[in-house]
Simulated assay, not measured.
Amino acid sequence: MKNLLNLFFPKVCPGCSAHLGDYEDYVCLECRHELPLTNFHFNGDERVKNVLYGRVPLEHATSLLHFSKKGIVQQLLHNLKYRGQEDVGLFLGKWLGQELKNLEAYRNIDLVVPVPIHKAKMRKRGYNQVHKFGEEIAAALQVPFNNKILQKRSSTKTQVFKDRLRRLDTDKSTFRVADENELKGKHLLLVDDIITTGATVEACAQVLLNIEGVSLSLATMAMTD
């Protein structure tokens, strides 16, 4: 049946658009081998944490991939955000989740929370590009995933291609928490697609860390070089 479906509705790699083989899952083997893994969570590299040094007290922080303009990761994230290819988030979430679940640093996570998008963007796109990524990580860590608790008040343009100063001017009142009591005393893992200057994470952290007993860690699909 799978071969018959592939004959009429062939699956293509979101990285290079080549048809996927029977044993390839979401990304072709060639693109998978080309993905620039950071291995931050394995080698103790605190580069992601250092982006927010002095601004957000993170317990742990990591990114799965290095992001560079015109590279394969940019292509993957573009397909995820603008071409409806949600399976990219699923694929990357499964990958990172399987790695984090074996690490002591991530075994005391209580809840996975995605960086939200505004309801206007949700209506236009139809999904939050971080949703499946976060769901897969939560499943691997065997903790709940909550995409309703952190909400975005106002719509802002994408951060990736903004200049540094404008990214740092992200409105600190952009986000709100629906029910603070649900988060009290918990270690949250905030998940996002990409970290650049950390302005979006900082804005989220300002409302999350204002809740009694909350501690915060971060995991993203990619980090800009």
Rank of each mutant, 00 (worst) to 15 (best):
Thr197Cys: 11
Ala61Phe: 14
Glu212Met: 10
Ser155Leu: 14
Glu136Tyr: 00
Ala139Pro: 00
Ile149Asn: 08
Phe9Gly: 12
Val177Cys: 07
Val201His: 04
Val48Cys: 00
Leu4Asn: 07
Leu58Gln: 08
Leu35Val: 02
Asn39Gln: 09
Gly84Ser: 06
Val56Ala: 04
Ala120Thr: 12
Glu34Asp: 14
Val113Phe: 07
Ala222Ile: 12
Ala199Phe: 12
Cys28Lys: 13
Val48Tyr: 02
His19Ser: 12
Ser217Trp: 04
Val73Pro: 12
Met1Lys: 09
Lys101Cys: 13
Asn39Leu: 06
Asn147Lys: 13
Leu37Gln: 05
Ile117Gly: 01
Asp110Trp: 01
Arg167Tyr: 11
Lys69Gln: 13
Glu180Ala: 15
Asn128Phe: 07
Gly21Ile: 00
Tyr26Leu: 03
Lys157Trp: 10
Ser63Thr: 05
Val191Ile: 12
Gln75Thr: 03
Leu77Cys: 09
Val112Asn: 01
Leu103Lys: 09
Arg55Val: 04
Cys28Glu: 14
His187Ser: 12
Val214Tyr: 04
Ile137Thr: 11
Gln98Tyr: 03
Asn102His: 12
Asp179Phe: 03
Phe9Lys: 13
Lys184Arg: 15
Asn181Tyr: 05
Glu136Arg: 11
Val207Pro: 08
Asp179Arg: 11
Glu202Ala: 10
Phe40Met: 04
Lys162Trp: 09
Asn210Leu: 03
Tyr106Arg: 00
Arg83Tyr: 03
Phe161Asn: 11
Leu165Lys: 02
Arg32Val: 02
Leu5Tyr: 04
Phe175Val: 05
Tyr53Thr: 05
Lys70Asn: 14
Ala138Lys: 01
Thr220Asn: 02
Ile72Arg: 07
Gln129Met: 12
Ala222Pro: 11
Ile195Trp: 05
Phe133Asn: 06
Gly126Leu: 10
His60Ile: 06
Thr196Lys: 03
Val160Ser: 14
Ala120Asn: 13
Val214Ser: 08
Glu59Pro: 00
Pro36Trp: 06
Leu216Cys: 09
Tyr23Trp: 06
His41Lys: 03
Arg123Glu: 10
Val12Ser: 14
Asp25Thr: 13
Gly93Leu: 12
Pro114Glu: 07
Arg83Pro: 00
Ala105Lys: 08
Arg47Met: 10
Lys184Asp: 02
Lys157Cys: 07
Ile149Arg: 02
Thr197Phe: 14
His78Trp: 14
Leu103Tyr: 05
Tyr23Met: 09
Leu80Cys: 03
Val201Lys: 01
Val27Gln: 08
His41Thr: 10
Tyr23Ile: 02
